[in-house]
Design a protein around this nucleic acid. Structure first.
Length: 574
DNA sequence: CGCCTTTGACCCGCGC
DNA sequence: GCGCGGGTCAAAGGCG
């Protein structure tokens, strides 16, 4: 996806939106509100100038209404239908049932004739007749305006769907491109550094690779514990997922979820927004978690082989939505500027930190599920900890693109790494060595203890690390580098991985996996020792990303080393 | 007037 | 069952 295409969609969306708002402002209406009717009537009857204006608009809109009235008649809500029927009730009363897609001229003619006919039965003055005629004309104009509005709304929806698809594809491809570039960098860099690192590094990598595998295997073991999905179904899903490389797994999962909900028809429209606002509550109320934005949907028909698939998809979606990206940065401001609009909806004093934790919700679109928590570090008040959660369901300004793609990619890349088709993404060292030649030990932290998979990026200055602002002087205002830093897999969440493995990972090493899962606990002490290594984090990231891709290349497995170390990094950098 | 922040209340999960 | 803690809601008030 090139940027031009994305921009063109932005422009299209903006145009549609502007068009809609223009109509809104011209008509002084709410799209589906009562105020429309009131104001439009007011305009039609009380202000001759505006009345003329409205007439012109209706005339202008007529051409389109001819195309869209099918849509309007077919899809409008019953409430709107009733209102629209109010408008034309008179003509029906006189035996004239008129199609909405007929030109207004015809409408007027019919009404005229009818009125004349009525007048012949019951004589009235010419003035009154013409007044009735005018009123009926305006009523029909009103219906036309309503149809035009609905058409614009539908167009808005379609554009939004398209835009979201393009947006998600763009994010995925952007990450892919980044990883490819970094792989190139790494290939050249590693050739020169190979002599330096040589054996110790390779051994470390090997060990960490097993760590990654153990995380994965643990997930598979956990999955095997409560799931006996058939191979064929897994394969089917795998093919489905890998068949759309441009889309994230999140998208695929949401497509499935959409499919399941549409089949079950259990999601009331009113609850969808609230569900997005509170996924936890959604889970509690046993409705599909966080109904996805229409933009995630595709025409592709997903395959659900059983209700268990549906449940799994929903569970996985819940985990993905809960995946978090945490950024630690020094900032005097109360919040780092990431290009998005946020609204504070709560504040709490969390245990163990006297500094209040603020809860923000993205307000760039209604129902956007993205949230963030901002809290100062208890030990160092100058450090601001920002935790992002969820994926945006709306177009983003360029300034917000970096952080948004980072947070969404952190979850989506995690999943795409489970697929063979994601070779480019997963086969890269996400931490560019040129950018961070001496990575701090706490630069990146993978949390397995948290209830949700969490990536913590520490961008604070430490003695082991060159100050970040030497690399990015504008930080935190310039966060364009974040996708490079954060877009790495989070293979540390057993439950999630178990669910993920059902999406395409074969279970041909179940016994080994279970053995490794048990060995995890035994190696905790070793892990603690390893974390003392200043280069561990960077090496871990390199190992995880490269080994995971390798593990899919030779899925039959060279992972035969059960006596390796593991790391269960706590999510506390303070 | 609309949007935002503040803040106490509430809900829910979890551990005991 | 109860208490605790995290997260969210929603009313009230401020601000531009």
């Amino acid at each position: 996806m090139d940027k031009g295409a994305r921009l063109s969609f932005d422009a299209a969306d903006a145009t549609a939106t502007a068009c809609f708002h223009l109509k809104q402002s011209l008509f002084g209406i709410e799209p589906f509100g009562k105020s429309y009717k009131t104001f439009a009537w007011k305009q039609a009857f009380m202000d001759p100038v505006d009345n003329q204006h409205v007439s012109d608009l209706v005339q202008d809109g007529k051409r389109v209404v001819n195309e869209m009235d099918f849509f309007a008649r077919d899809h409008r809500s019953s409430k709107e239908q009733v209102e629209a029927d109010d408008v034309k009730i008179e003509s029906e009363h006189h035996g004239l049932v008129q199609g909405n897609n007929e030109p207004a001229a015809d409408v007027n003619t019919g009404l005229n004739l009818l009125t004349t006919s009525t007048a012949s039965e019951k004589p009235v003055s010419d003035d009154r007749t013409s007044q009735n005629l005018k009123e009926k004309q305006r009523a029909n104009q009103l219906a036309d305006i309503r149809a035009e509005l609905e058409r614009i709304n539908a167009e808005n929806q379609r554009l939004r769907v398209t835009l979201n698809q393009v947006n998600s594809n763009y994010c995925a491809l952007q990450m892919h491109l980044v990883s490819l570039m970094q792989r190139q960098q790494n290939q050249s860099a590693e050739s020169s550094e190979a002599t330096k690192l040589n054996r110790p590094m390779e051994e470390k990598r090997h060990g960490e690779a097993i760590v990654a595998r153990q995380f994965m295997d643990l997930g598979q073991a956990a999955k095997a514990k409560n799931d006996e999905l058939s191979e064929s179904s897994s394969e089917g899903r795998f093919q489905e997922l890998s068949g759309s490389p441009g889309n994230t797994i999140v998208e695929s999962m949401e497509r499935r979820q959409k499919n399941s909900t549409s089949r079950n028809e259990t999601v009331p429209s009113d609850s969808s927004r609230k569900d997005l606002m509170d996924p936890g509550r959604n889970q509690r109320e046993d409705t599909p978690e966080g109904r996805p934005h229409p933009g995630w949907f595709s025409n592709k028909v997903p395959k659900f082989n059983s209700s268990r698939d549906v449940e799994q998809a929903q569970e996985t979606m819940a985990m993905i939505r809960k995946a978090r990206v945490s950024v630690r940065a020094r900032s005097e401001a109360s919040m780092i500027s990431d290009g998005c609009q946020w609204r504070k909806y709560g504040q709490k004093i969390a245990k163990g930190n006297p500094c209040p934790r603020a809860y923000y919700r993205c307000t760039m679109a209604t129902g956007c599920p993205v949230r963030k928590q901002v809290q100062r570090c208890a030990d160092d008040r100058t450090i601001l900890i920002t935790t992002y959660e969820g994926n945006h369901n709306h177009p983003l300004p360029p300034a917000a693109m970096a952080m948004a793609s980072t947070t969404s990619a952190a979850a989506s890349m995690l999943l795409s790494g489970s697929m063979n088709s994601a070779d480019g993404i997963m086969n890269s060292n996400i931490l560019p060595k040129g950018m961070f030649p001496a990575c701090s030990p706490n630069l990146v932290t993978l949390s397995a203890s948290a209830p949700f998979p969490t990536v913590t990026l520490d961008l604070t200055y430490t003695p082991n690390q060159r100050p970040l602002n030497q690399v990015h002087p504008n930080w935190p205002h310039n966060i364009s580098s974040l996708p490079h830093l954060l877009g790495h897999p989070i293979y540390n969440q057993p439950k999630l991985l178990g669910l993920l493995s059902s999406q395409g990972i074969e279970h041909n090493h179940l016994a080994q996996n279970q053995t490794r899962a048990h060995s995890m606990a035994d190696t905790a002490a070793t892990a603690a020792a390893i974390t003392a290594d200043p280069n561990f984090t960077a090496a871990l990231m390199a190992a995880i990303t490269s080994i995971i891709s390798n593990s899919h290349r030779d899925n039959s497995g060279n992972n035969n080393n059960d006596s390796t170390t593991s790391r269960d990094t706590e999510d506390n950098n303070t």
